[in-house]
Amino acid sequence: MADLTTIRLELDGPVGLLTLARPEKLNAMSRRMVAELTSVLEELAADTAVRCVVLAGEGRMFSAGADLDEFRDDFGAAGVDPAATEREARDGARLTAALESPDIVTIAAVHGAAIGGAAAVVAACDLRLFADDARLVVPELAMGLPLAWGGIERLVRDLGPAVTRDLLLTARPLTADEAVARGFAMERVAPGGLLDRARRIAALCATRPRRGTTIALGRIRAVADRSRAEGVDDDAASLAVAAGDPEALAAARAYLASLDSTSRRT
């Protein structure tokens, strides 16, 4: 695999641990990180020796979502480039599709927070473990932007439309307790034991015969996805349209300014 600068890969027999490794940036998902994750996951899915991958974050949280430096550039004085926005959204959709490949079992080990695009990444994993302090937050609508990368469809699939509307419209956090109660996360784990528990579950999943597992995961996905197959628009194209809206542009700039203000106070 090519040199990795934003993530770290460790292989232990049939189990891989992929760590988001930008702790100084709260594991913000830069364009490079998205590209590296996608490339590695697609290679692992094609490797018959690897059966399961745990996805985790280094430092204070799983991931703060979009890289704010890149986001500020996108919503700067020159305005938004809809074509570039759509292209980047399709890159994110390719990443979540790689996580959802039936050729490999993916487990999200979430601590701290998974925000925005990181929430879409977590939703694309087959299994999810939440540390006691974990929360999932989707603040995009505060900027007038719909969550892309297939995130809305997967949240509706696994949480239902009412809860998804609640999370998107209010941007309130989905806590570990609620995630487990609603079946979105399989377990709530003490933070210090999160990776160990994820590795043990991954090792168990890796013992399942490959062909049968692939068929089962593909069938589960096909049944679950029937409800999202018709009448759903192209979320990359929709994001590009929304991002170019003057009201959304103003809201995004105000949101970024509020983050700067909060950062200065803390």
Rank of each mutant, 00 (worst) to 15 (best):
T38N: 01
P102D: 11
A131N: 04
D74F: 02
L136Q: 12
R210K: 09
R87G: 04
S30V: 10
D132A: 13
A250C: 00
G13E: 10
T19G: 00
A134L: 05
F184S: 13
D196S: 12
C52R: 05
D73L: 15
L239T: 09
F184T: 14
A35G: 05
S258L: 08
E70G: 15
D81F: 01
E43V: 10
L141V: 03
R253P: 07
R200F: 07
D233T: 12
A162Y: 04
G112H: 11
I104P: 02
L195N: 01
R60P: 15
T38F: 14
T266L: 06
L195W: 03
G193R: 11
R172N: 11
G117Q: 08
D47Y: 06
A89N: 08
A179M: 06
G13W: 03
T38M: 08
A162I: 08
A224H: 14
L259P: 07
T214Q: 13
G193H: 10
A89Y: 05
L159Q: 02
D69V: 15
A181S: 09
A242L: 06
T164E: 01
V180T: 08
K25I: 07
A98W: 12
A93P: 08
D196M: 12
D233L: 07
E10P: 08
L17G: 00
D235S: 02
L44P: 00
G79I: 10
F75E: 03
A248Y: 04
A134V: 02
I152C: 10
V122D: 04
R219F: 01
V156H: 02
V163P: 00
V34T: 14
E10A: 13
D158W: 06
L204G: 02
S39Y: 08
R32F: 09
I107Q: 06
A224T: 15
A142K: 12
R128K: 14
F75S: 08
A46C: 06
I115S: 02
T38G: 13
G65S: 04
T213F: 03
R200W: 00
D158N: 07
R182L: 15
A171E: 00
I220D: 11
R22F: 10
E36F: 12
S30L: 07
S238R: 14
N27R: 15
H111V: 04
I107T: 03
A171I: 00
D245C: 05
A119G: 11
L9C: 12
A237Q: 02
L18W: 01
E247C: 04
V189M: 01
T106S: 09
E42F: 09
V138H: 03
E100S: 15
L204H: 01
L41N: 10
L136A: 13
S227V: 10
A77H: 00
V241T: 15
S63H: 12
T96C: 14
F62D: 12
